[in-house]
Simulated assay, not measured.
Amino acid sequence: MARSLDYGNMMHRAMRGLIREVLLDVAAHGLPGEHHFFITFDTLHPDVEIADWLSDRYPGEMTVVVQHWYDNLDVGDEGFSITLNFGDSPEPLYIPFDAIRTFVDPSVEFGLRFESQTDEEEVPAAQMVEIEENGAPDEEDGDRGAQPEAEIVRLDSFRK
């Protein structure tokens, strides 16, 4: 069989590199203007590090909001660590880039969605998401609040 280019995985690496670059900038300079992030990740990923009570409350998937209060943002090659406030209780988290399912900045209508491979024929693809802001998240919990609705633009529609 002839070698082929794995565009799906190349795109995943590029988009995760973009997230890393954004977080490095925020770690160095803070969040500019109205920028804030909704980051949804797989809590079952083997390298995710979150408190037991969070993994019990969110078995499988969790969305965190990086906006008004965060601390200790440290970005590495494979993921990032951050301390977020959950009901007046600071909790450290470590989120590998491979565990991220969506990354959204509703202030500029930007978002990425990573879909996993569902069968051997399907190539996973990162997708750009058009965001329509739909209210503020529930910041009291610091986790899963109201999320913006997203219109997904599938890259498969551009394939021939």
Rank of each mutant, 00 (worst) to 15 (best):
A27V: 02
D88N: 14
D105H: 05
V153P: 07
T43A: 12
D105L: 02
D56H: 03
H35W: 06
R144D: 13
L54S: 10
G145I: 09
F158C: 07
T102L: 00
D141R: 15
V129R: 08
S116K: 15
V153L: 14
G30R: 07
G17A: 15
D71A: 01
F97K: 09
E120H: 04
V108N: 03
E132A: 09
D56I: 01
D56V: 05
R154Q: 13
N134L: 11
D141Y: 13
A126D: 06
I19S: 02
I95T: 08
W53L: 14
F41I: 08
P32E: 02
D71E: 04
S81Q: 03
M15G: 09
T83C: 02
R159E: 15
R16F: 06
E120K: 07
S89L: 08
G142S: 08
D138H: 11
Q117T: 09
H35M: 09
E140H: 08
P148C: 00
V104H: 08
P124H: 02
M11F: 05
P96T: 06
G79Q: 06
P96R: 07
A14E: 07
H45Y: 00
A51L: 04
E151D: 14
R154G: 10
D52T: 08
R16N: 04
W69S: 04
H45F: 04
W69M: 01
R154E: 14
V65P: 00
P148Y: 00
L18R: 11
D119A: 01
W69R: 02
R113D: 04
P124T: 00
A2T: 01
D42Y: 06
D88S: 13
V64M: 13
S157Y: 11
L5W: 05
T118F: 05
V104W: 07
I19E: 03
Q67A: 11
T63I: 04
N134W: 11
D105P: 02
L93R: 00
T40Y: 07
R101Y: 10
V26A: 08
A51M: 07
L54R: 10
N72Q: 15
A2L: 07
D71W: 10
D141E: 15
D143T: 15
N85V: 02
F114L: 00
E140M: 10
E122L: 10
L84I: 12
G8M: 06
D74V: 05
E34K: 01
P124C: 04
P59I: 01
A2Y: 06
E130H: 11
F86K: 13
R20I: 02
D143H: 11
I152E: 10
V123N: 12
V123F: 13
I39C: 02
I19Y: 01
R144H: 12
G8R: 07
A136M: 11
E78S: 11
E49I: 09
D138G: 03
D47C: 02
M128I: 15
H45M: 04
F97Q: 09
A125Q: 14
V22P: 03
H29F: 15
T102P: 01
P32L: 00
V75N: 13
G17K: 11
G8T: 09
T83I: 08
P59H: 06
E130N: 09
P106G: 03
M62W: 08
F97N: 10
Q147C: 12
M1D: 01
R144S: 11
E122S: 13
M11L: 05
D74L: 03
E21R: 13
